[in-house]
Amino acid sequence: MTRRTLRRLLGRATLYAAAAALTAFAGFPFYWMLVTAFKQNRDLYVGASDLRHVPWVFNQSPTLDHVRLLLHGTEFPHWILNTLLIVAVVIAVTVALAVPAGYSLARLAGRWGERLGIAIFLTYLIPPTLLFIPFSRLVSLLGLQNSWGSLILIYPTLTIPFCTWLVMGFMRSVPWDIEEQAMIDGYSRLAVILKVVPRLIVPGILSVVVFAFTLVMQEFVYALTFISSVEKMTVSLGVPIALVRGDVYHWGALMAAALVTSVPIAIVYNLFLDRFIESFTMGAVKG
């Protein structure tokens, strides 16, 4: 074996080792969720000082008990429904406001478009943890405490800035010529916007829907601040806060809940990843 092939082999091995290590670090909590969710309690609750019992694998046959408990013995199904309802409304509001705004910034606002766009994007950086206190004032003024109304009102402030930016970036990547051609062929601006643009902008809208979906699914701070009764909670709030029976953590059910919620979000998010990344880097690193 020559030195070059040896070096290449070594390089390959390092690559695999690094890939495996990084993937393991990222994926380990999910593996742990999976194992915990299906282990029998006898297998689960063995102190870690007992070195003869290997916690990484199923020592006894897997069980669906925890999943059953989650679906029938807790409010989890309710939370899913609550979340989906809120998500639907927030997506509708976001699409209705952010899509026209993004289009306008990309196509109609001219010199001001760039600056306004960046200004709107920067509001995305104002974190919920700075705003939840004034919002709590606002929410009690409006009498929306402990209601979905508060979340539906507030979540669009999270989604609109980024989604406007997203649509703007998307429209910038679409050539103008089709719209201009339609204007020459006899459409007014308004007619172009109403009849030609919708077709062009569909992928942009899709990524807005996905982004708003994931953002609302992930939100914790506002839900924690404004929702107090268990049956009105969202998934990301209810699971860590209210899935505790008395003082006992049902880890199996908890992990099952975490797993079934996060994996679909991750899958959807992955589909649109490239578009999001392009927006995060402010369009600076297009290939």
């Binding site: 939100e219 709030l237 699971v239 860590p240 979000i265 998010y269």
Partner: peptide
């Protein structure tokens, strides 16, 4: 896909898994 899971998962659910 696995690498990106931590980014897509809701913070609170990730935190509860880590608590365990």
């Amino acid at each position: 896909f696995v690498l990106l899971l931590p980014w897509a998962v809701p913070v609170s659910l990730a935190a509860i898994a880590w608590e365990w």
